[in-house]
Amino acid sequence: MDLIIPTLSQGLLWSILALGVYLTFRVLDIADLTVEGSFPLGAAAASACLVKGSDPFTAILVAAVAGMLAGIITGLLTTKLKIPALLAGILTMIALYSVNLHVMGKANLSLLQIDTVFTKFSFISDDRQLVTLIVGAAATLFLCLLCYWFFGTEIGAAIRATGFNPNMIRANGVNTDVTIVLGLLISNAFVAICGALVAQSNGFADVGMGVGTIVIGLASVIIGEVLFGTKCFWRCLVSVVLGSVVYRIVIALVLELGMPPNDLKLFTAILVAIALGLPLLQAKYKAKQWKEAAK
């Protein structure tokens, strides 16, 4: 039972990544693989700053800006050079692998004995996990509110409309190249912030820590939507955060039941494949039932 708080805190920390994935996958209607590069980029940028002795908040801000730049690059590749969004994301992701090594100077950067955002708030409690939970919850709440506000503004509405119907928003005088770049920028800023927080929570940044993050994000988004609904924008944001928490609970459970940790990514990928395919399978099943009933 002492797993509860760590599981919750991991779920909340990673929900920032899930929010970023939600913004591209659902709001912009783009599957953006930049995530796999911008997550470790955020971790690398923040860690490099922290090692040089900068304030944890500054480090997170630097990570966010780095994530924005990554998003802009993918955005320009797909809008200005008309490279399909999926491929544009892959190109940025691959390029970022080298960039991340440059940022860290090596493949792995330890943050032990270094002041992080979590040690900053250690006055709250002696329990490190509880501090992580509180900081994670606060960060998630803040970013959710920011999201809700921004996507309710005129610019935010234009970005949402771009995802629903680019023809419509162009006919209403909005340059969709700009809204797509802007959407990718915000999404990757979120992902990089998540990377920065996870690195500080784990006590290290690693060049390989981005592998599979897109699938974790998608799993959280889909689990959240199925379990908690998508009635309005605020509800969607809350669903994604809760989806991330549920995902961590599921992972904790299967590990507890004895699944080897090496199989985690396989498990997550299968989970996402089933969740994505479920609507189609359900429709087919229903059609079959209907046919049989008609006989």
Binding site: F150, G152, T153, E154, I155, G156, A157, A158, R160, A161, G163, F164, N165, N167, M168, I169, A171, N172, G173, V174
Partner: peptide, 29 residues
Amino acid sequence: MGTAAGMMIEENLAIASRRGKMPTLRWSA
């Protein structure tokens, strides 16, 4: 083609009422 299906009627109208103007950070609808 002419409307954003996932947005409310008032959100669609709000976007159309600003046609040709630069979107700002004011509340959309």
